[in-house]
Amino acid sequence: MNEINVMVVDDSAVVRKVVGAMLQSAPGIRLLHAVADPLLAIERMKHQWPDVIVLDVEMPRMDGITFLRKIMAERPTPVVICSTLTERGAETTVAAMAAGAVSVITKPRLGLKEFLNDSADELIAAVRAAAQVNVKRLAARAAVSAHPPQAAVKLTADAILAAPSESRVPLQTTERVVAIGTSTGGTQALEEVLTVLPRVTPGIVIVQHMPEKFTAAFAERLDKLCQIRVMEARHNDRVLPGRALIAPGGRHMLLRRDGAQYYVEVVNGPLVNRHRPSVDVLFRSVARNAGANALGIIMTGMGDDGAAGLLEMRKAGARTVAQDEESCVVYGMPKEAVKRGGVEKTVALKSIDREILAQLTVR
């Protein structure tokens, strides 16, 4: 495997020094440059283009989002955002991910050097994952996000699927649940799926691998774009038709049932598959508490989180769907789920909304 050439763009001298040193010492990674702002980066990139860019978002002269959009328009390149863990930074970073960034590493305002040293494994893993993304799909997602769908052209329930007749619903049927798990490339993919869903949809629960604070900003952004209600989940929130609940960063989310009603538990706990929230945790809880009343969907992402849980869902009678390789930014999580036998059906990203709406008529 060829070396991964990495450029660091950050106005903090501490970040440039520490991150540059840890990348340089990692096997198979080569630090091309560590520069203080995007204008300096542009000059260096004229001579050699990096495979991966580690990018801050709040910088003088040119902000990270403007630089990111320029890169995606000129020559799409995997970008790992290295952003300060603040509410304001979260909103900016979510915008950066919508513009094409593949993952986020958070950094505090205080104790920066110690934090970065402690997060070396996470950063190196993020860079390695970024180097494996499908750049063609990354470019396509960035182009879609640059021109989000307008409310006027969003589909309604009647245009896609007639509302189910109450007379056809079995007496013992409970509410339907859709559980979605995704990681690298998932922010753009979820936007593409959720923005075309009409208000009449089954309740949706989502795990998107994302750090603490960023999930709230991500949910708020989607809520503004979607006809359905999108929220960061809180403990004991009901799972309702027309609502999508996103697991908060740093907490696990589980589905629970009370009679015919579903709600979520948001809990602390150890990392599962190196993640919190974990897709496997959500899927296992859905398998146990919803069974055949659920649809499980595993989408673009690095690693295998969710593969075991999706198989449990299928064994419990749930329908299970994986995003296909061609439309994934990283075909890792879906590939592993298919390999383990947890996937009933593989579909393109553009078809996932139809799979979700089909839950309305499952008997």
Score class of each variant (00 low, 15 high):
K113H: 11
G111I: 02
L311H: 06
S285Q: 10
V127G: 02
V133P: 12
L161G: 13
T66Q: 11
I356N: 01
L116F: 12
M7D: 01
V338M: 10
R284D: 15
A179W: 08
R340E: 03
I352N: 01
P76Q: 05
E344H: 14
S327I: 07
H147C: 12
A307S: 04
H209F: 03
A120K: 13
T86H: 05
G317L: 02
D324K: 05
L55Q: 02
G309T: 04
L31Y: 08
A142L: 05
G203K: 01
I105D: 05
L197V: 06
A179K: 03
V52K: 00
E87L: 09
R319V: 09
G64I: 01
T184H: 01
V6F: 11
E74M: 14
A163G: 11
V207W: 09
A96E: 04
M231S: 13
A179I: 06
I356Y: 02
E74F: 15
M210P: 13
G100R: 04
R238Q: 14
V127F: 08
L123P: 07
V338R: 05
L357P: 04
E91P: 15
D280M: 08
E114L: 10
V102E: 00
K335H: 10
E91R: 15
L85R: 13
A120N: 09
A13G: 13
G291I: 00
I81M: 11
G186I: 04
G309M: 03
V18T: 06
L55T: 03
Q150M: 13
A130K: 02
A146Q: 09
L39Y: 14
V193S: 01
I246Y: 05
E122R: 15
A216V: 12
D280Y: 10
L32R: 08
L68F: 04
A98P: 06
C328L: 06
I81K: 06
E212P: 10
D258L: 13
G186Y: 00
L85P: 00
T93K: 03
T195I: 10
E265H: 14
V15E: 05
A120C: 12
E336T: 11
A151G: 12
L310N: 10
T361V: 13
L222M: 12
V8M: 06
A152P: 13
A233L: 05
M97H: 06
P270M: 06
D63I: 00
K107Q: 02
G64C: 03
T195S: 10
A131M: 05
T215A: 04
S278R: 02
A189Y: 04
E325A: 07
T106A: 12
P27A: 09
D37V: 00
Q24G: 15
S103W: 08
L161W: 12
R141Y: 14
Q323C: 08
V239C: 08
P148Q: 01
V133S: 05
P248C: 10
A125I: 11
A120E: 12
P78C: 10
A13I: 10
G301Y: 00
Q359N: 11
L40H: 08
L23P: 05
V153G: 13
R30F: 15
G291D: 02
L295C: 07
I204R: 01
P270E: 10
S12T: 07
S103D: 12
S351L: 11
G242L: 07
R137E: 15
T201L: 07
K46I: 04
L116M: 09
R69H: 08
A316Y: 05
